[in-house]
Design a protein around this nucleic acid. Structure first.
Length: 152
DNA sequence: GCCAACGTTGGC
DNA sequence: GCCAACGTTGGC
């Protein structure tokens, strides 16, 4: 099983929305590295830290999990979508997305500042300078540690 | 709103 | 294949 961090702007799609919807297709990723993680590495059952970016404050809001393997992101075919890609065809889709399911919202989010202040998390990718990738692998030890920290 | 960091595009 | 110009991300 693998562990991930997935960023979402709460104004666009928050953990509360995921709780309401139960599952969502993670559409709109238009970065090859993030796409490749979804296509090649994410498997149902993988655990996800749900990160609120561009938020006040930014931080990890709770847990989600992968519920379905990647499929073509339908928005790439939709001329009206901001994620439309004229180079994509149904025969040869370019962009893929996994389905993500709600697991739990933490009683209190762990803010970016708290992550930075914790020496045992300093290797996490999300804390590295200039780390903009919206989907990142997370080490099990960091995932487990954060889970414990969230309940403390 | 600013801007550093990074990714993508396109001319050559 | 290089790299300048441009666009985006996301914290502050």
């Amino acid at each position: 099983m693998n562990y991930w961090l997935m960023k979402s702007e709460p104004d666009v799609f928050s953990i509360d929305q995921l709780k309401k919807d139960k599952t969502t297709w993670w559409t709109g990723v238009r970065n090859y590295q993030a796409r490749n993680y979804m296509m090649k590495d994410m498997k149902p059952g993988d655990q996800v830290l749900f990160y609120h970016s561009n938020a006040e404050p930014p931080g990890i809001a709770g847990l989600a999990e992968i519920t379905k393997l990647a499929e073509a992101d339908l928005e790439q075919f939709d001329k009206k979508s901001q994620y439309f890609d004229p180079k994509a065809t149904k025969e040869k889709p370019i962009w893929f997305c996994v389905q993500v399911g709600f697991v739990k919202k933490w009683p209190q989010m762990i803010s970016l500042q708290e992550l930075r202040d914790d020496p045992s998390l300093k290797e996490m990718l999300v804390l590295q300078k200039g780390s903009r990738l919206s989907i990142q692998p997370v080490e099990k030890k960091h995932f487990d540690y954060l889970n414990k920290k969230a309940k403390a």
